[in-house]
Computed example of a mutant assay.
Amino acid sequence: MTNHQPTRGEPRVALVTCSRLVDLDPDDRLVIAPLAARQIAAEVVVWDDPDVDWASYNLVVLRSPWDYALRRDEFVAWAASVAALVNPADVVRWNTDKRYLAELSAAGVPTVPTSWVEPRETWQPPADSGEYVIKPAVSAGSQDTGRYDLADPEHRDLAAAHVRRLSEAGRVTMIQPYLTAVDTEGETALLFLAGPDGLAFSHAIRKGPMLTGPDLGPDDLYKAEEITARTARPEQLAVAERTLATVPGGTRQLLYARVDLIPGPDGDPVLVELELTEPSLFLGYAEGAPDRLADAITTHLTRS
């Protein structure tokens, strides 16, 4: 899976993926040529490959290890064993469990209201008839995620079964009101990449609505997405900056960050997720984005 044979003295960077994406997601491959142009040898490596010598890399960059959701403890332990990992292991531990949203909400970040159901805790759908999203607190790529209209008796039964299925598997469930603005406005993802002075805004994209109904069983590794370029608005950038200001340990340690926002009931942007572990960066949707990521990697190599 080596993409570029290093010459003597070239920094070696591992681009970390999973065994189901051994050639990386196509969007992630866009950074390989810009890295080569900077005399940086990029190699695609599977995170749980026991034969990899992680200490041989100058930097280990998390990209698409999207099979970790059912093996989070193993993944977090692996991250802690890789000294040159970005984003670093402490961030991975914090960010791979979406209960961080409760911390951000308590810190004053406008977030989508979320309730939590612990494993083996009983849960009944709320009495109101709104739409809700149910998903596990540890997930990637919208796996095990469903949308339920609680005015529909069948949906109420399916929602209860979804929570029960996650609970019986020992997983924490998160329950959120469905933000209907996503059906028209979509979701805005704001991408930030490391620069000399810390994270800097790079670009934004729009995701179309993805959830069409209940979760009825095993998903693919990630759901298909409708992506277009978008210009970030000042109020979105303001919420993103407030969100990033709450990251434990600060943002200078980060190579990248993605802030996902949807308009709330009053039209103001609210945080849906802060992606610091393995976010798609949508490099192909903004001119110069692959070069900006290569520059960010160069910045971290210089620091290390």
Rank of each mutant, 00 (worst) to 15 (best):
T2L: 15
Q5N: 10
L15E: 05
V16F: 09
R20K: 07
L21C: 15
L21F: 15
D23I: 12
P26W: 06
L30Q: 11
V31S: 15
A42H: 07
V45E: 14
W47H: 02
D48C: 12
P50N: 07
D51L: 08
V52W: 11
D67M: 15
L70I: 03
F75A: 02
A77C: 07
W78V: 09
V82W: 06
V82Y: 06
A83Y: 04
L85I: 04
V92P: 09
N95M: 00
T96A: 11
K98C: 08
L101P: 02
E103A: 14
S105C: 00
V109L: 01
T111H: 00
E118N: 15
G130R: 15
E131G: 14
P136M: 05
A140H: 15
D144W: 04
R164S: 15
G170D: 13
R171G: 09
R171A: 14
T173G: 00
T173Y: 11
T173E: 00
I175N: 04
I175S: 03
P177Y: 01
Y178D: 01
L179R: 09
V182C: 02
E187F: 15
A204F: 03
P209S: 02
P209K: 07
L211D: 03
D215K: 12
G217I: 05
D220A: 10
L221K: 05
E225Y: 03
I227A: 05
T228A: 14
A229S: 12
T231V: 04
A232S: 09
A238Y: 01
E241H: 14
T243S: 09
L244Q: 04
L244P: 04
R252Y: 06
L254T: 10
R258Q: 14
R258W: 10
D266S: 03
G267A: 10
L271E: 00
L271V: 00
L271W: 01
E273H: 08
T277K: 01
G284Q: 11
L293E: 06
